[in-house]
Amino acid sequence: MSKASTIEENFTKLEEIIEKMESEDVTLETSFDLYSKGLKLIKDCNDKIDKVEKEMKVIEGGSEDE
């Protein structure tokens, strides 16, 4: 069972993907694969940030609907 990545780990992975995509010898197929992996990492980061924001609202006594 693999552990969930942290936001920081995802940012590091995204930086690696960007570097690979900027390489002159990357194929179109590889670019699409890297792009797809990057989108999944971004979605995971957004989900984690949303979760933290909701937790902060609860801690601050605010409503999640704001």
Rank of each mutant, 00 (worst) to 15 (best):
S2L: 12
S2T: 13
S2V: 14
K3Q: 15
A4T: 15
A4I: 13
A4W: 09
S5H: 12
S5L: 15
S5R: 14
T6I: 06
T6K: 08
T6F: 07
I7W: 02
E8Y: 07
N10L: 15
F11V: 03
F11C: 01
T12Y: 00
T12H: 03
T12G: 04
T12P: 00
L14I: 12
L14K: 00
L14D: 01
E15C: 04
E15H: 03
E16R: 10
E16V: 08
E16K: 10
E16F: 02
I17D: 00
I18E: 10
I18Y: 08
I18K: 09
E19I: 05
E19Y: 03
K20W: 00
M21D: 02
M21E: 08
E22T: 10
E22M: 09
E22D: 13
S23A: 12
S23R: 10
E24L: 04
D25M: 03
V26I: 13
V26N: 04
T27V: 02
T27A: 00
T27G: 01
L28Q: 08
L28T: 10
E29I: 02
E29K: 05
E29M: 04
T30I: 00
T30R: 10
T30Y: 01
S31K: 08
F32V: 03
F32A: 06
D33P: 04
D33Q: 06
D33K: 05
D33G: 00
L34K: 01
L34S: 00
Y35V: 04
Y35K: 12
Y35H: 11
Y35G: 02
S36M: 09
K37A: 06
K37W: 01
G38V: 05
K40Y: 07
L41P: 01
L41F: 11
L41K: 06
I42V: 15
I42C: 11
K43E: 15
K43M: 13
K43S: 15
D44P: 07
D44A: 12
C45K: 02
N46E: 15
D47N: 12
D47P: 00
D47E: 15
D47T: 13
K48N: 11
I49P: 02
I49K: 09
I49H: 07
I49W: 08
I49G: 05
D50Y: 09
K51D: 15
E53G: 10
E55K: 13
E55T: 09
E55R: 11
E55M: 12
M56F: 14
M56K: 14
V58Y: 07
I59F: 14
G61L: 03
S63G: 03
S63T: 11
D65V: 11
D65T: 12
E66F: 01
E66H: 03
E66Q: 04
